[in-house]
Design a binder for these strands. Structure first.
Lengths: 225, 225
DNA sequence: TAAATTATGTCAGTTTCTTGTCAGCTTGCT
DNA sequence: AGCAAGCTGACAAGAAACTGACATAATTTA
């Protein structure tokens, strides 16, 4: 899942970036409202974590313009204080959640997960495809309750394929969701990862079908379409 | 198991903290209602022991707010007197048990154990995994009635793994359950403890499987997944 | 109370796993 | 056939996890 973090505090920024990256997100970071606003005009994210106190353009403004463009990406707002007025203002402008500093990292992560869930799978923590169940809350995938041993990359790839519910997912989409800007990733790297994931899923009668020129899709082995 | 003790009486506080720590709990202590309330807004516990007469914010209020946030952590209330009215009020607000001072330490410990049991193992004092049985009432683990010689840390770790019933337990979760705030513990310390416990369990055909990047899970040696 | 034992964290060296790159192969289309 | 797209085994750098050795603190024993 691709996440944009907009935060000017250097320490917080680094800590959050590291934490989210470790949790398997592709993270981009912007340090001021203006750059964030520009970036958001052409780059899609699965979730945005937005500080309100920002140089150049404050968080409210970034959020306002984002929504004005019709963008519905879930946004979680961070503020320096437990300030009811700002909270109300943020939610009015279309924020989806709100967290006052100081906060626990665990709580932030939990809320971000909740936002992503709400957006893609109607609020449920689990996405399933036949007997395959992906639990987004603890990033674990199991087949008939047997937990699969998958690496972060494989997990991220499978998550995307499952969230798209057996629809074709293009390589461009995969690239976008698995990689933040700074890590360049070749298309071949995706092919390699698909190949690896394929081996692990084939055992359970699930295949990743290649749609030449278009992308990949998740399917059951017997269902020849 | 992680326990929060909220108590302003210095002597009682120290005594209980020492006793619970010795019994293998990771104990955090708060001396007033306000701090406890804040702490509880982001930190999870397995059980809370709450005095009613507290400075800043009384115990009723702490409990009320906890439940208002949807938190279902078992709470045991302590009060100065055998006061039926307060007892009823506490239970109405969502307390799970009640103990009037003065009380026997042994009784408090027994009730706390009972509360934890009720939550995780359906009320039974014993949790088992194959021939491995963990008796929470005396904190002892045995394999086919042969008692194992385990240290507190190993016991706590195994307890957590067994309660999670062969599901993956993350290092973060382990850290959270084995350590109170003031004792910092590195991730490597967990690895070392896992390594030690592993050696003792392997003898009985039980393994602690590593799920790289996610955590550990208890399994029987033969079940290769 | 001092010595012995036990518990438990830190460290460092090693092992294992992850993941991108590359090269050569396969597949499908015209 | 010839080309482009895709597949996959091999490799290597780096990250994560394991574990023996040691240090220190807590507990027990004599």
């Amino acid at each position: 899942m691709r996440l944009l973090l907009v935060e000017d505090d250097l320490i917080l920024k680094d800590g959050l970036e590291r934490a989210f990256t470790k949790s398997g997100y592709a993270v981009d970071v912007m340090c001021d409202g203006d750059s964030a606003n520009k970036l958001l005009s052409y780059q899609e994210y699965d979730v945005i974590v937005l500080d309100l106190g920002l140089p150049k353009l404050d968080g409210f403004e970034v959020l306002k313009r984002l929504r004005a463009r019709g963008n519905k990406t879930p946004v979680l707002i961070l503020t320096a204080l437990e300030d009811t007025q700002n909270r109300v203002k943020g939610l009015d402008l279309g924020a989806d959640d709100y967290l006052a500093k100081p906060f626990e990292l665990a709580e932030l992560e939990a809320r971000v997960r909740a936002l992503i869930r709400r957006g893609v799978s109607g609020g449920s923590a689990k996405v399933s495809f036949g007997d395959l169940v992906f639990d987004t809350s603890n990033r674990q995938c199991s087949f008939n309750n047997i937990p699969l041993s998958l690496s972060q990359r494989e997990l991220a790839l499978l998550e995307l394929l499952m969230l798209k519910a057996a629809k074709v997912v293009s390589k461009a989409k995969i690239l976008e969701h698995l990689c933040s800007w700074d890590e360049g990733m070749s298309e071949n790297a995706i092919e390699v990862n698909v190949s690896r994931l394929r081996k692990k899923l084939n055992v359970f009668g699930i295949e990743i079908r290649t749609i030449r020129g278009l992308g990949y899709l998740l399917a059951k082995l017997e269902n020849k379409v």
